[in-house]
Nucleic acid binder design. Sequence first.
DNA 1: CGCAGGGTTGAAACCTCTCAAATAAAGTGG
DNA 2: CCACTTTATTTGAGAGGTTTCAACCCTGCG
Lengths: 262, 262
Amino acid sequence: MQTATHASVAPIRFVPRATAAAIDDAPTPLKTQCSTCHLKDLCLPCGLTGTDVERLDGLKFARRRVKEGQAIYHEGDKFQFIYAVRSGTFKSTLNLRDGREQVTGFQMAGELLGLDGLASGKHASTATALEDAEICAIPYAHLSELASTSTDLQHVISRLMSREIVREHSLMMLLGSMNAEERLAAFLLNISQRMKARGYSASEFHLRMSRAEIGSYLGMKLETVSRTFSAFAHQGLLEVDKKHVRITDLPGLQQAFELRVQ
Amino acid sequence: MQTATHASVAPIRFVPRATAAAIDDAPTPLKTQCSTCHLKDLCLPCGLTGTDVERLDGLKFARRRVKEGQAIYHEGDKFQFIYAVRSGTFKSTLNLRDGREQVTGFQMAGELLGLDGLASGKHASTATALEDAEICAIPYAHLSELASTSTDLQHVISRLMSREIVREHSLMMLLGSMNAEERLAAFLLNISQRMKARGYSASEFHLRMSRAEIGSYLGMKLETVSRTFSAFAHQGLLEVDKKHVRITDLPGLQQAFELRVQ
DNA sequence: CGCAGGGTTGAAACCTCTCAAATAAAGTGG
DNA sequence: CCACTTTATTTGAGAGGTTTCAACCCTGCG
């Protein structure tokens, strides 16, 4: 549904896991401009004035298609690009010793990926497409060069990083002090809000992630996620059919979540 | 023990909660330089070359004493300063609806506080001293002005923010996939490492936070924290007496933690 | 000296996890 | 196009770990 508006983009070949980093070094040389992007109010240009947005157009970055299941970078890969999601949904994950993965976030259109790579020069997580997607690959060197000519742009980047910190704070609160129902309610309300901000229905949507991925993100087992979905359905808060969700009692769902959180 | 090295600083009066923000507007006008600070390898100047560190000296910021229990900013306060811990320990907290608080981090000498305020211009958390402490209050406006003259300084700030994101990632992993023993082991090893980096013993230290605060941070109840301490003691991994901890089997503790994490 | 706050420990309740089985959907290959 | 396999999801029952409630100890302080 989200990819429908970007049909005129050259597809890139599928890149197997071991060499996925290689695509970072040779992005499709297709130029894109921020000033005319339909996501400019959500994405990098958000908060910038006309002149600064135009300055952003000086950035030479490429659009890329990413197939479902394909990673745009892996934990440990050299950090060179920041990625903006144009369409589709991604998950960010950390690898656990026993081979399992911990989901640290889901990213939707207009959201940025890869900011955790600045710390050490290597990506600290892996970003994988949950459906066929499209991204802008922004060379960090160019971006920071550009930022040195505009304090406003500097602030925007700092603000975006700060937002990520704040987001993770609330996730820590969720993981540290909420039970299963509160966690899932918080998750669904968050998705609902983000769908709404992107012009989709806030009450009915298609989850792109599996029960296991939701569980990993929320710190619970997939069976518990499934059970909690069923419990919400029995309570009349929503209707679920696999990944399709329809919220039928938004205030009720908010109450299930707001029992604890400020 | 940490405060002993900084005795020649004018004390500030205790400021009650409601007006604590006021001290932000009138910091003690005592100038400090980064280039001669004993924390320069841990703190803001970390990674900067000689010339850039000198440029940091152009920053006019004040040192301040903070009494145990006093907050340097509260959730919702206007964001103006970034704070560097000179001595002492702080906790960062979020308020929960039911009046309880969620601890999102502990900060030691050389670590920064307040970066979460950039996102919205208001502090997203509260920072409270766990013991008498000393901080540098760095006006963010000055810092970002200075950063516009040095790309290296820009990078340092970005890197520090990114580090915070990475730190929170691993905490999410901890909260999402570890049991009580793994959590406490991870916490103690982290504290141990940070003590070591500051020139203190890695194996014997005094915790500045209560069982309840540790529990809030680690997503467990204070009784469980206490029980897990006792369990470690029974296993011969450490000796505990209230807040005093001596790690007697570091490899054993690491094993208790590394069972899951990469 | 009594009290409050922080810490420890015990026992039972409760929630989530684990293990297991059944179902449905989707992909595979003849 | 149909059996077959694989994967995702749901649901049940019992195990297990953490929380809850409670009692008790210790220390510092007015």
